[in-house]
Computed example of a mutant assay.
Amino acid sequence: MGNAPNPPPDGFPSPPRPQSRRYGEGETRPVKRTRESLFGWDIEEEHGSSYNEPSYEEWKLETMKTGLEDVPLNFSNPLCILSDDNEIIHVVVGKDATQWAIHRKLLCSQSNFFKTAIDSPFREGTENKVVLSEGQNDVFSLFVQWLYSGSFVTNSLPLLLQAYVLGDKLGSPGFQTLAFDKIYAFNISSCHLTAEQAVWASENTLPDSTLRRFTMDTMAFGLLNGSLNPSHEDWELLAPIQLDILRSVQSVAKKQEHNTWKQKPRLHYNKAI
């Protein structure tokens, strides 16, 4: 006979037996409470009774089902707007006259500019064709990508700035907001805006626009934390907006704690796009 393990001393319970449980599997545990479980199943408190605890995947699936019961289909799937939409709008962009074929319902639902132009008695409405002669195809391609996917991908800060301005021209606040979110993330820890970009943003936006306010704050933020070191030529380029930058220096400096030099939070710019 082998050596049997000594029983634990009185007052010292045996350690629990480890139970192997793979990710995604449920688990059987003793019930020690009386209330409805996560899914509304009744659980009775009885000594020795047990229940099958749902796995994470089961819980997530049930949560999604519960949350989507009352959600309209066109909300959960934005592309449902394309149902029975056989009408195509041709958009001609830039000097190269690049043509885009876009579903009418989708285009008009996301752009007040296109909706007004296409629903009008003018040429755009009768020909189902809109010409953006001053537009840039690489920027407009981001708008088309956003229309059909709800997002777009680019690592170019100049393109993001132009996307923001395009969203303003097209009357598309959703596209404009996404562009600004990416611009903000680009400059969250340090200033990556150049003098040329700051002046361009000022010249192509209204005085109270979100992008202009953020541009001035970011230039001020860069000057304060040392991530922006303008050259003599840069200061000359910044001459038209130097006063606005100085005002932002005062505003940004007031919000700092212990000289940490943090960028203003994203919610600070939620007042208006």
Results as ranks from 00 to 15, higher is better:
Ser202Val: 02
Lys255Phe: 05
Leu246Pro: 00
Glu236Thr: 07
Leu267Pro: 00
Leu224Met: 15
Phe214Trp: 15
Lys262Pro: 00
His232Val: 12
Glu236Val: 07
Pro240Lys: 07
Leu237Gln: 06
Ser251Gly: 04
Gln250Met: 14
Asn204Ser: 12
Val252Thr: 02
Glu203Lys: 12
Pro207Met: 04
Leu246Trp: 04
Asp208Met: 14
Thr205Phe: 13
Asp234Pro: 01
Asn259Asp: 13
Arg213Lys: 11
Leu211Arg: 09
Leu237Met: 06
Ser227Pro: 09
Gln250Ile: 14
Val249Leu: 15
Ile245Ala: 11
Lys255Trp: 03
Leu228Ala: 14
Ser251Phe: 08
Gly226Glu: 07
Ile245His: 06
Leu267Asn: 13
Lys255Asp: 05
Asp244Trp: 00
Thr205Gly: 11
Met219Asp: 04
Lys254Gly: 03
Thr260Tyr: 02
Gly222Ile: 10
Glu203Ala: 01
Arg266Trp: 08
Leu243Thr: 04
Leu243Met: 11
Tyr269Gly: 03
Pro240Ile: 03
Gly226Pro: 00
Ser209Tyr: 11
Asn229Thr: 07
Thr210Leu: 15
Ser209Thr: 07
His232Thr: 09
Gly226Thr: 02
Gly222Ala: 09
Lys262Gly: 07
Thr205Met: 13
Glu233Ala: 11
Asp217Tyr: 01
Thr260Arg: 07
Ile241Cys: 10
Ala239Arg: 03
His258Glu: 12
Arg247Trp: 00
Arg213Cys: 07
Ala253Trp: 07
His258Ile: 09
Met219Gln: 09
Trp235Leu: 05
Asn259Lys: 06
Asn270Glu: 15
Glu236Cys: 02
Ser202Ile: 01
Val252Lys: 02
Glu233His: 05
Phe221Met: 03
Arg247Ile: 06
Leu223Tyr: 12
His232Tyr: 04
Met216Gly: 14
Ser227Arg: 09
Lys255Gln: 13
Arg247Lys: 12
Pro207Glu: 08
Pro240Gly: 08
Ser231Val: 05
Asn229Tyr: 03
Pro240Gln: 05
Asn204Arg: 15
Ile241Gly: 04
Lys271Arg: 11
Leu246Val: 14
Asn204His: 15
His268Ile: 02
Val252Cys: 03
Phe214Gly: 15
Pro230Glu: 11
Ser231Arg: 05
Leu223Glu: 08
Asn204Asp: 08
Asn204Ala: 06
Thr218Met: 03
Pro230Ile: 05
Leu224Glu: 13
Pro230Asp: 10
Asn204Phe: 06
Lys271Tyr: 13
Pro230Arg: 01
Pro207Phe: 07
Pro265His: 00
Tyr269Gln: 07
Asp208Tyr: 13
Ala220Val: 12
Asp208Lys: 14
Pro230Trp: 02
Ala220His: 15
Trp235Met: 10
Ser251Pro: 01
Leu224Gly: 12
His268Leu: 10
Trp261Cys: 08
Asn225Val: 10
Asn259Ala: 11
Asn270Cys: 15
Arg212Leu: 15
Pro207Trp: 05
Glu233Val: 04
Ser202Asp: 13
Asp244Cys: 03
Leu243Phe: 11
Tyr269Ile: 06
Ser248Val: 10
Arg247Leu: 08
His232Pro: 00
Asp217Pro: 04
Asn225Ile: 06
Val252Asn: 01
Met216Asn: 15
Leu237Tyr: 03
Gly226Ser: 04
Tyr269Arg: 06
Arg213Asp: 07
